[in-house]
């Protein structure tokens, strides 16, 4: 009877649910491939944080200030 606790039942909800999936297995495979592409490929190689890459740590505000002020300065163009 001890096994009927909340955590045990919660565990079995997920465990039995995942084991008995049919279509769900295909969907999970698609989700995992998609999440891998998004986080391990796109984020890692194609979407760096532009400010962190170009501004010294702690001087991000100066970097953005320069960007925003320069783009409004007539001499810039």
């Amino acid at each position: 009877m001890k096994q009927e606790g909340f955590f045990f039942r919660t565990f079995h909800l997920y465990y039995d649910g995942f084991r008995s999936m049919t279509l769900g297995k295909t969907l999970w495979l698609i989700i995992l491939i998609k999440v891998f592409i998004i986080f391990a490929v796109l984020k890692l190689f194609f979407f760096p944080n532009h400010i962190h890459q170009n501004a010294p740590p702690g001087e991000e505000d100066d970097f953005v200030a320069k960007e925003l002020i320069d783009r409004a300065t007539p001499s810039h163009y």
Binding site: L23, I31, K34, I38, L42, F46, H50, I51, V64, L68
Partner: peptide, 26 residues
């Protein structure tokens, strides 16, 4: 099915903020 396909597609928009729209993000 639709839920599984849609999951995480919105996250990409947040990546774009940090890379393409960094002045905006800051």
């Amino acid at each position: 099915i639709n839920f599984a396909m849609g999951i995480a597609t919105g996250i990409i928009l947040e990546f774009e903020f940090g890379t393409n729209w960094s002045n905006y993000s800051w």
